[in-house]
Design a protein around this nucleic acid. Structure first.
Lengths: 213, 213
DNA sequence: ACCTGAACACCGTTCAAGT
DNA sequence: ACCTGAACACCGTTCAAGT
């Protein structure tokens, strides 16, 4: 009874269960994964020595690996469409696992899929003639857009308990029209704003490249 | 010994300690607050019946109350400067308590300071002639900017473990120049992008108000 | 009224024991 | 090699007991 005839666990099985929890449940615990797999919590440590931290890193890797980068950065696509696709695809992947978002934020990352994701964006910024010392700045702004939108989607509705008397403008805003896809609209608005801004800055640069006005 | 001569706790004392923890420490626990006050954890429940949730709500109220709204929305200030000030002041208040950020996100709010904060922004959007049904969309985008920037500031440095061989563009971006205030730059860039976009959309509107071109 | 201390149901993690 | 079960140090929360 201490050891089953067939192997019950593997790194892959554990991560699959973790992904499912993080996509459906509100909280994400070692105990929860173990229960989901019908196994003792301590058993997980034979496959994930790093514990919860290692699981989170592996989750990020899996989530970002789902983003298809092949459609990006080809010579035929403009930097505008690359940035647009990057934000949309990134945010779609993240929003699929809402309860993973707080786990992913603010951690040092070194896995290949994540680095590849940001490398592709940086190349696009180079093509957009963004000065090199501003790359991190623009990246952090687009990052904010992605996670802000994903968080917005995971937020309760209504987000504000406002009243027509106390906060008339906010109340009217909430009452105004269904707005079929507010979250998506916000994201697209942010993308357009960012690209317009980059295009405007670009027009001010000294044109030391052929074909650039 | 079960009861001291002088009162040890009060709602105010507890919240002050919680604010201090959330500003300095990495984690925020009931036990931590109690230790900080030299008191038994269970004692807190005599003043905060709602437990940790109530403390978080009260923290938000205190943090946002520090934002000075008097400088906003006056008849003499443009909607552009209102939005700019709103984002800057909001983000400054939030960034002061980095470990509170995950606690504040995605919760239904009903306290007066928070509602006042968003009411002021919504009024500015009205003045900017943003159609009412787009108010929530724009708010969510500016929200993303605020929290994205605050999270960025709380993130470890370096955020990516990239190599010159594996991710050349990203590596160059990280190596390029000190960038004195990257976070602030990202925020200001986002603000300018948003305002430019709102100004451009505004120019496309039917001018049914006098003085609007 | 106000605080303590025991108690409970949870966490994540370690480790000796079983097969 | 692989899983269990006891154990430990933590959480948040409740409640009877003390003054």
């Amino acid at each position: 009874m201490a050891r089953p005839r067939k192997q019950l666990l593997s790194r892959d099985i554990i991560l699959e269960a973790a992904l499912e929890l993080v996509a459906t449940q509100r909280d994400f615990t070692i105990t929860g994964i173990a229960q989901h797999l019908g196994v003792n919590p301590s058993s997980l440590y034979h496959h994930m020595i790093g514990g919860k931290d290692e699981i989170i890193e592996a989750l990020r890797e899996r989530i970002y690996r789902e983003i298809d980068l092949r459609a990006l950065g080809g010579a035929e696509s403009s930097w505008q469409s690359t940035i647009e696709y990057w934000v949309l695809a990134y945010r779609e992947a993240v929003a699929r696992y809402p309860s993973a978002i707080p786990l992913l934020l603010g951690r040092t990352v070194g896995d290949a899929p994540t680095l590849a994701l940001y490398e592709v964006l940086t190349v696009a910024l180079t093509e957009a003639d963004v000065p090199r010392e501003q790359h991190l700045t623009v990246i952090s702004m687009l990052d904010a857009l992605v996670f802000g939108s994903a968080l917005d989607a995971a937020s309760p509705d209504p987000l504000w308990l406002c009243t027509a008397d106390g906060q008339p403008a906010l109340h009217r805003a909430g009452a105004a029209d269904p707005a079929p896809d507010r979250i998506g609209d916000g994201l697209r608005l942010g993308i357009r704003a960012a690209i317009s801004y980059l295009e405007a800055s670009r027009a001010l640069l000294p044109s030391d490249r052929p074909g650039v006005s």
